[in-house]
Simulated assay, not measured.
Amino acid sequence: MTNPNRQQIIEAHDALKKLENAAWHGGEDWHSTHWKNLILAALPPKPPETMADIEWEDGRHYLAEAETEDGIKVVMISQHGDFIRCTQPPNSGDVVIGLPREELTPTGRYYTPTQPQDN
């Protein structure tokens, strides 16, 4: 078996889905399910979407958490070209860094800004 890259794996999964849709006439049967499972067993898992696969939306991505390829959690602030401005709470303070879109995978978590409470 070859060693497919990320894009080839995604394209293989997409092709499988298209093949399944094309072959599906009126309902799934045992054969189509069996063949699909054989193909999926041979394919590596489909990689999660990165921010390179997703169009930036302020309302959806501002203050959303993402994970880098190294497993570091960051908070996305804005997109600037092929980079996303991020910060890494609580360690970074006010430091903002630009990370390549293809290196960030959204986690589905969000941060909410709050005001400090006076005692």
Rank of each mutant, 00 (worst) to 15 (best):
I72C: 05
G71C: 08
K73G: 02
P90S: 04
L63H: 00
H31E: 12
I72R: 09
K17C: 05
M1S: 01
P44I: 08
D94N: 10
A64L: 06
E57H: 11
M76T: 02
E69R: 05
H80T: 11
P90R: 09
V96M: 15
T33D: 11
T2D: 10
L38F: 09
G81P: 02
G26H: 13
A12R: 00
R109K: 15
T50P: 05
R6K: 04
D94G: 09
D82G: 02
D14S: 10
E28W: 09
R109F: 14
E55N: 12
H61Y: 12
H13K: 03
I97V: 14
R6T: 04
V74Y: 00
N37Y: 09
V74T: 00
P89G: 07
A23D: 05
L63T: 00
S32E: 14
D118Q: 03
D58E: 14
G93T: 05
N119T: 07
A64W: 08
L40K: 15
R101C: 08
Q115M: 11
T50Q: 08
S32W: 12
R6L: 07
M51D: 00
G71E: 06
M76N: 01
S78L: 03
D82C: 00
M76R: 00
P4C: 06
R60Y: 13
M76Y: 03
Q79D: 06
A64F: 09
Q88I: 02
H25I: 13
T114F: 15
I10V: 15
A23P: 00
E57A: 03
I9R: 01
T114L: 15
Q117F: 08
D70F: 02
R109E: 14
E103I: 02
S78I: 02
A64C: 14
N91G: 06
P45H: 09
P48G: 06
E28M: 12
L19Q: 03
E102W: 10
V95A: 14
Q8E: 15
I97M: 15
T33V: 14
L99I: 15
I72T: 13
S78H: 04
Y62S: 10
I9M: 08
P4I: 01
A23G: 13
L40T: 10
T105E: 01
G71F: 07
D118C: 02
A64V: 09
H31A: 09
I77Q: 01
T105K: 04
Q7H: 03
Q8S: 11
D70I: 00
T107M: 12
H80K: 14
T114N: 13
D82I: 01
A22K: 12
E67Q: 09
Y111L: 11
R109I: 05
I39G: 07
P48M: 06
G81V: 03
W35D: 03
T33P: 04
E102M: 05
H13T: 00
H13A: 01
I39T: 14
W30T: 07
K46I: 10
N5P: 04
R101N: 04
L38Y: 10
P44K: 05
K73C: 04
P44A: 14
K73S: 03
P113Q: 07
Y110F: 13
K18V: 11
E57M: 06
Q79P: 05
C86W: 03
A41D: 15
I77C: 02
N5W: 08
P47C: 13
G93H: 08
D94Q: 07
M51H: 02
P47A: 12
L99T: 04
K17N: 13
N3Y: 08
G59R: 11
K17T: 13
Q115T: 07
W56A: 01
G27M: 10
D94W: 07
P116D: 05
G98N: 12
Y110E: 03
